Amino acid sequence: MSKRSALRPDLFAGQRRESKLDRLGDPLIALNKHIDFAALAAEVDRIAPRPESAQGGRPPYPTETMVRILVVKRLHNLSDEQVEFQINDRLSFQRFCGLQQSATIPDRTTVWTFENRIGADAARAVFEAVQVQLQRRGYLARCGQIIDATLVPAPRQHIDKEDKAALEKGEEPDWTPAQKRQRDTDASWTKKHGKSHFGYKLSASVDAKHKLIRKIETGTASEHDSQHFDAVIDAGNTGSAVYADRGYPSQEREAALKARGLKPMIQRKAQRNRELPERQKQRNRRIATVRARVEHVFGAIAQMGGKLLRTIGQARADFAMTMMAVCYNLKRLTHLESVRSTGK
């Protein structure tokens, strides 16, 4: 075939490309097939209704379209600028967001404004709405739950000693408005495995059967994992076992779990200068085989583009971390549905 014939204009080129995307396996098509995005948008509008403007102007984009854009943004870890460019550039993104025939594409400011409008409360409502869809499809929380936390890094702050001392006293440093916007005074430092980390923390309860996130809690990096333990206990799990690593053991916690009819499967930690008995080591290994499933969840979140936050402040960090959990569950649901349909 000559170059001229291969490059000739085709009035149906767009349709042909869409058909080829389907054959190649566009993952966003699977999301569109299995997720009721209209229901998620309804939750957003319930918690954060659209502001009414008497000045007229261009009508706002549908909430469902904006929710889909947030999902694309989080699945690919895009900034507001990048998501604007990618939607303009990629047919698959336009198709998923319902913007193929739109004369305009939401710009970075529109995306930023929408995120600020809905906030962490609406993101939590979306998370719970996804749980409803999971249950309707038969994915009940089963076989016990695994509780763990992951550090979510934020851009590191460079604050001099004088400003740091003022913050520790509860005083506000002499910063310009521009400097204040770039200073994250909510995030905190912590050490893990001998390395320093700055940012926030996402705690989760994951069901051992389907590896879906059922409960979440957010905080800063310096908050100990155990502070979120009770908040993420999932009372809806049909299994009684509660798996956790060595960072959570305490007699009070285990007694509280037993009082609720739950079975504590928390790894034991050796005391200083005393080695664990072999029986406890074997128990830890048995727990580890199940508890490792939660690491798959956090690893999958990292593979969606990384956990690094692009925001400043606790409120926006809570929103971003909640959307991480939402998008993980959406992606996991499509995988489970694919396995169910193929039988593999």
Rank of each mutant, 00 (worst) to 15 (best):
S250L: 08
A38L: 15
E64D: 07
R340D: 09
L70V: 13
G239D: 01
A255Y: 02
A208L: 09
R214F: 03
L257E: 10
D245Q: 15
Q267M: 08
K258H: 12
A302W: 15
E162N: 13
Q15K: 03
P249A: 01
T113I: 14
R58E: 07
A165K: 15
L140H: 13
A204L: 14
V132W: 04
E115F: 06
P27D: 01
R246N: 06
F198E: 05
G299C: 05
Q101P: 08
D160C: 15
F93N: 00
R285P: 11
S250Q: 06
L257S: 09
A259R: 11
A187E: 06
S188Y: 05
S2G: 10
F127A: 08
M324H: 14
Q280I: 07
L140I: 14
W175M: 06
G25E: 08
G199Y: 02
R142D: 07
G119K: 04
S196Q: 12
A30P: 10
E84N: 04
K161D: 15
A256V: 06
I216H: 03
G239P: 02
R291S: 04
R90S: 02
F93W: 01
D230S: 11
T334S: 15
D107W: 06
G119E: 10
R4D: 01
A103P: 03
T110C: 10
D80I: 01
T176P: 09
E84D: 08
V206T: 15
R253D: 02
A54F: 11
D45A: 13
F229T: 05
K192T: 01
E43D: 00
K281W: 09
Q157V: 00
S338D: 05
Q182S: 08
A39E: 07
E217R: 13
A38Q: 15
R246E: 06
R283P: 11
A13C: 00
A221T: 01
A42V: 09
A103T: 05
G199C: 02
K258F: 08
G119C: 03
S203P: 10
R8F: 13
P106A: 02
D186P: 02
R74S: 06
F85M: 05
R183I: 10
P153D: 02
T238R: 14
R108V: 00
A129K: 05
H193D: 07
V67E: 03
R340W: 09
H296E: 06
P106V: 00
V232E: 01
L276V: 14
I312K: 08
C143G: 09
M323V: 14
Y200S: 07
R253E: 06
R181I: 03
Q133E: 04
R260C: 12
K3Y: 11
R95F: 02
A125R: 05
R340A: 12
Q227V: 12
N273H: 15
R274T: 14
Q182T: 08
S79V: 01
A255H: 07
